[in-house]
Each structure stands twice: as structure tokens, then as C-alpha cells.
Amino acid sequence: MNRFIKPNQSIKISHIITAMIILLFIVVTTIPVDSKGLEGYERSTIVVSEGDTLWSIAADLHEELNTNKETVINWIKGQNELEETVIITGQSLTVPIKKGEN
């Protein structure tokens, strides 16, 4: 029995290594930047004004919440069961706020 890797086996091993690198990249890039999340904050309801976007709402909130805009957007999407980032003037949204600022 030959203990060395045959040429066609080396291709398979390189595919496995490549797949593992891609998988590692996907896992690392999908981990939230802010690991503490927004569990410790209260909820408030706002009404979307003309010109508001999830990005602009998150921009107003992220520094006060000591997190990044993406975390705030993902929290708002999750709490409001939004599949997309499109919001409509007059729509009510639940947003995170610091405790005691309600």
C-alpha cells in the first residue's frame, strides 16, 4: 500500500483546504461586531418621519447605545420583523434606548 498522496488525491485535499478557508471566512465575517448586543436596553416606539431610513435612525442612536449602526439596524429589523431595510413614513418602529430615557 502506497503511503504517499497520489496526484489526484492532492487535488481533493486542496479542495478540502480551500473549502475550510472559505467556511472560516464566512463564519468570521458574520459574527456580530458588537458581541454584547442590545439586550440590556429598553424599547421605545417611534413613528417614521419623511426621509427617515434605518441607517439614519441607527445613526441617531448608535453612539448613545455605545454600539455600531449595523447592530442597531439588525436589532430594529429583528424586533419589528422586517425582512428588508425599507421603512415607510408613518410606520411605527420599536427602537432600543438607554434605560430610563423613555
Rank of each mutant, 00 (worst) to 15 (best):
R3A: 10
F4M: 02
F4Y: 03
I5P: 02
K6F: 08
K6Y: 10
K6W: 04
N8R: 09
N8Q: 07
N8Y: 11
N8F: 12
Q9N: 10
K12L: 14
K12V: 03
K12W: 02
I13H: 13
S14Y: 05
S14D: 14
S14K: 01
H15V: 06
I17N: 06
I17C: 10
I17R: 06
I17F: 08
I21Q: 04
I22R: 00
I22W: 03
L23Q: 13
F25T: 04
F25W: 07
I26V: 12
V27C: 10
V27F: 13
V27P: 04
T29A: 10
T29N: 13
T29P: 03
T30I: 10
P32A: 09
D34F: 02
D34R: 04
D34L: 02
D34T: 01
K36P: 12
G37H: 09
G37Y: 09
G37C: 11
L38T: 00
L38Y: 12
E39Q: 05
G40T: 14
Y41R: 13
Y41L: 07
I46Q: 11
V47D: 07
V47M: 09
S49N: 09
S49W: 01
G51D: 07
D52K: 00
T53M: 13
L54I: 07
S56A: 10
S56C: 02
I57C: 06
A59E: 14
D60K: 15
L61H: 08
E63H: 05
E64N: 12
E64W: 04
L65M: 08
L65G: 02
N66P: 00
N66A: 14
N68S: 08
N68M: 06
E70H: 03
E70G: 07
T71K: 11
T71V: 03
N74G: 10
W75S: 03
K77P: 09
K77N: 09
G78W: 11
G78R: 06
G78N: 15
Q79W: 13
N80C: 11
L82K: 01
E83Q: 15
E84M: 02
E84P: 01
T85W: 04
T85Y: 05
T85H: 05
T85S: 14
V86K: 11
V86Y: 09
I87R: 13
I87N: 04
I87P: 14
I88Q: 11
I88Y: 14
G90A: 02
L93D: 13
